[in-house]
Design a protein around this nucleic acid. Structure first.
Lengths: 140, 140
DNA sequence: GCATTTTACATGTATCTACATATATTGTCA
DNA sequence: TGACAATATATGTAGATACATGTAAAATGC
């Protein structure tokens, strides 16, 4: 059985490992990781987002976003558009990307429902909110 | 600014990235990551633990524990003891490992205090508890 | 007793992660 | 205008992570 830890960081890592496995398994039939699906969702919400936009929104390192985008680009789920600035890359979903998003949505929804069934929808919401408050305070 | 996400998994990952950076930075002077320090702490609590004991306690994959132990073993902070069973490895802190733990403890404590100062000690505790409840429900 | 299964740990491979740094482009200002 | 700073992204390297699989040793069952 997992141990209760005094460390805030270790406790969050513990829970994040467990929940990530859950979502990764849920997305497995699509050949996508949870992280990759999250990026597809973000690009649906924020069309033509740049690497830095996504990095800031998700509190991810710019280099991590860069590499993960490369993976879903290689899978032809997104494509790069030129920005006004020749430095920047604007990313958009391809038709295949939108299809994956449609196919993945019920899988993602059932993972969400599963979490709610395990700890209760209100608990789940409170946990999510508390995690986000911490993110806001810590993200530079 | 970081976005509030509907996904429980993405929200936890977001917060975990942020807090992990905080603890990793805190442990930097010791040339240790937060994860490595957590393993030292666990081996202090559970002397002669086996790989699988640690994996279960932390809800980590056995292979991840195996590799991380190899790192702190190479740094001579822990050493392998023979178990009764020739398959198993029992891990114990070395003198250098205990020293690192002593040196790291104030750094870890101040990271803990910093989290509390950011979101409040009660909020921090509730977040930790909620994370642990989720871990318990999800850990296979 | 020996074949089969189970247990304990390690290794191959791939993704996620971040820090340090590189590269290319744009902005600034003397 | 030309040097220097700032911005946007990518690459080198290394740790954290997990799944699939390998290896060795112990347990089980006939």
């Amino acid at each position: 059985m997992a141990l209760k830890l005094p460390c805030y960081c270790a406790s969050l890592r513990q829970a994040t490992r467990a929940i990530s496995q859950e979502y990764d398994r849920a997305m497995r039939p699509l050949n996508l990781t949870g992280t990759q699906f999250t990026l597809l969702r973000m690009l649906n919400e924020l069309p033509s987002a740049r690497v830095n936009d996504l990095a800031e929104a998700l509190a991810m390192d710019q280099t991590t976003v860069s590499r993960t985008l490369a993976l879903i680009k290689d899978a032809k789920l997104i494509e790069r558009q030129a920005g006004e600035d020749r430095r920047e890359a604007r990313w958009v979903l391809t038709a295949a990307g939108r299809k994956k998003l449609r196919e993945g949505s019920p899988l993602w929804e059932s993972a969400q429902r599963r979490v709610e069934s395990l700890i209760g929808a209100d608990q789940a919401e409170r946990l999510k909110d508390a995690a986000f408050r911490l993110t806001q305070k810590l993200a530079r």
